[in-house]
């Protein structure tokens, strides 16, 4: 059996239904642990004071905002190439979650930037590409909503999604491509760690918490989309009778 059997809606509903309580439970537990740890058990930073607490929301939100868009790009590509409806619906379901995280990243960045950089906003490469990513999320959702025929909406919005993928990549790597006001990456998997453990550990918990929250919401929303699609099919078939 290949991995593609999960593209079958019935199979997807079965597997995702079984996984959802575990993913959601773990997401809630990690979020509670992460928020508690970040707020109550992290020290002040010697330069940033207590504003460093914004780190634990800002970084996971921004990373998951970009990951969310990459999930949409991959799902749209699979949908366009293999014509699996569930893929398109995964991308559609991911958009509002990603847009929410992008907005959260923008907002927390502004309220962190004002006390630390002395400005809410700068038009540097990192911030600007992230803002454009937000607009692509909105445009993608608007396009889905604007087209009545779901087949056509799926195809066109998938193409729009692929175009916006450039900005997901740009906002991730902008700090390496250009000199920006935004600092470079502070955490990496390949050593070269710039964060001390008392900040790193709660941040890792929050990164996992945001990832699992995204997954749990994605499962819920994809299941909703599949149900709505089925309801539409029943309505069309009874209308023909």
């Amino acid at each position: 059996m290949s991995i593609w059997k999960y593209a079958n809606p019935a199979e997807f509903m079965r597997v995702s239904g079984a996984a959802l309580p575990w993913v959601a439970g773990l997401a809630i537990a990690l979020m509670a642990l992460g928020v508690g740890w970040s707020l109550f058990f992290t020290p002040e930073d010697y330069q940033q004071g207590q504003t460093v607490k914004i780190l634990f929301i800002h970084v996971p939100a921004a990373i998951q905002a970009i990951n969310g868009y990459l999930v949409m790009v991959v799902a749209s590509l699979i949908g366009l190439i293999r014509r699996h409806h569930v893929s398109f619906l995964v991308a559609k379901a991911a958009a509002p979650i990603g847009a929410g995280f992008t907005l959260l990243g923008l907002f927390t960045g502004a309220v962190w930037g004002e006390p630390m950089w002395g400005t809410w906003w700068v038009w540097d490469a990192r911030l600007t590409s992230f803002l454009i990513l937000f607009f692509f999320y909105l445009g993608y959702m608007a396009l889905w909503a604007a087209i009545d025929d779901p087949e056509k909406a799926a195809d066109l919005s998938a193409v729009l999604c692929l175009v916006g993928g450039v900005f997901a990549i740009l906002s991730r790597y902008a700090v390496q491509f250009w000199a920006t006001l935004h600092q470079g990456t502070s955490i990496s998997l390949s050593g070269n760690q710039k964060l001390t453990p008392e900040f790193l550990y709660p941040l890792v918990v929050m990164l996992l918490a945001f990832l699992l929250t995204f997954l749990a919401l994605l499962i819920v929303r994809t299941r909703t989309e599949i149900r709505l699609r089925r309801a539409r099919a029943i309505r069309l078939s009874t209308a023909e009778m």
């Binding site: 979020m31 800002h58 929410g100």
Partner: peptide
Amino acid sequence: MGGYAPYVWSAYGAFALIVGGL
């Protein structure tokens, strides 16, 4: 929050609002 209360709490407030709302 060491004098940064409006910044820190609005960030956590936005987090609760957006993730809770979603």
